[in-house]
Amino acid sequence: MSSAAPPKGASPKTRRARHAKSSGRGARTARPAGLWRDAWHDLRRRPLFTVSAVLIAVVLVMAAVPSLFTSVDPYDAAGCVLGDARQGPSAAHWFGTDNQGCDTYARTVYGARNSVLVGLGTTVLTALAGGLLGLVAGFRGGWLDAVLSRVTEVFFAIPSVLGALLILSIFRTGTVWTVTLALAVLAWPMTFRIMRASVITARGQDYVVAARGLGASAGRLMFRHILPNAIAPLIVVSTINLGVFIAAEAGLSFLGLGVQSPDITWGLMIADARARFHEAAGPLLFPAALLSVTVLAFIMLGDAVRDALDPKLR
């Protein structure tokens, strides 16, 4: 049965409330759909995203507050007993000890900070430099686009290891920041090309043409209309690259070109432990395992974000 009509003497407020209730407008209005909201809704249902996000969260907490995971300070020389060198896992030393008698578990936990800092720093620098230049080149076109494209081709022609060797030899010291800068100098052309291609696709869309016709300035067109709709591929690649840069730092440290002692990174631990691997495998296997899990987690997260942001893959 239909609801009874409001009495004639009812107030306008009462009439509007009863009309809204009968028509269903009193219910909460659904939020408008959008790319990012739909992507987040899709991500929450993906086990791949959940697993990778949990692993990355643990690693980030470990890097930010290592004292939550161990009470041993590996930077304190008093905690290293040479007579306990190359011991196997035990109740006192979960991952055993390294060549200097230091606790491998504590060094693995504290090594996460520098490794993650290199990955995050390089990712931010490459995303800002390559993304901004790609945005300008893709939007402007012409001679500016041609010059920047030729410059990126020069960087692509430089072998990564040789380029890192050259840059780090200039600084003559291996720290977190010099390694970050060396990797960023070599990696920004990749983000430039991805952002440029995305901007070229977006600048011909109807909403950009309409905004241009209404008199929008170049800055407003780039940062208000094009950038929000062209940045998705850059986010996906940056997420995957973060894991790649962590692995690259480990490779440079393994070759003796990356972060140097007394700093601790997973790559440096692997390099120090390789000579005595047959006597004590723990100092090499445990940081290598955590390095592999971290890199895999970022790659998995990037794949999940890519699938969520691409409507064709849903």
Rank of each mutant, 00 (worst) to 15 (best):
Val236Leu: 07
Asn229Thr: 03
Pro233Gln: 09
Asn229Gly: 03
Ile235Arg: 02
Leu234Trp: 04
Met222Ser: 00
Val208Ser: 02
Thr239Pro: 03
Ala230Phe: 01
Leu221Ile: 14
Pro233Gly: 12
Gly204Lys: 07
Ile226Lys: 00
Ala218Val: 11
Gly219Arg: 06
Leu227Glu: 01
Asn229Leu: 03
Thr239Arg: 01
Val236Gln: 03
Gly219Leu: 07
Gln205Met: 15
Ala210Asp: 11
Ser238Leu: 11
Asp206Asn: 12
Ile231Phe: 12
Ala218Ile: 08
Arg203Ser: 06
His225Thr: 03
Gly204Glu: 11
Ile200Leu: 14
Arg203Ala: 05
Phe223Thr: 11
Ala216Ser: 15
Phe223Tyr: 13
Pro228Thr: 02
Arg203Gln: 11
Leu234Ser: 15
Gln205Cys: 13
Leu214Asn: 14
Ala216Asp: 08
Ala218Gly: 08
Leu227Cys: 07
Leu214Phe: 15
Tyr207Leu: 08
Val237Ala: 14
Ile231Ala: 13
Asn229Ser: 11
Val208Met: 02
Asn229Trp: 03
Met222Val: 02
Phe223Pro: 02
Met222Asn: 00
Ala202Thr: 15
Ala218Gln: 11
Ala218Ser: 11
Ile235Tyr: 03
Arg220Met: 08
Phe223Trp: 14
Met222Ile: 02
Ala202Asn: 12
Gly215Asn: 08
Ala216Tyr: 13
Ile235His: 03
Asn229Cys: 04
Leu221Asn: 05
Ile231Cys: 10
Gly213Gln: 13
Leu227Lys: 00
Gly213Leu: 15
Arg203Phe: 06
Ala216Gly: 10
Met222Arg: 00
Tyr207Gln: 05
Ile200Lys: 12
Gly219Ile: 06
Val237Glu: 13
Arg203Ile: 06
Val208Glu: 00
Ser238Gln: 11
Asn229Ala: 14
Pro228Arg: 03
Leu234Thr: 15
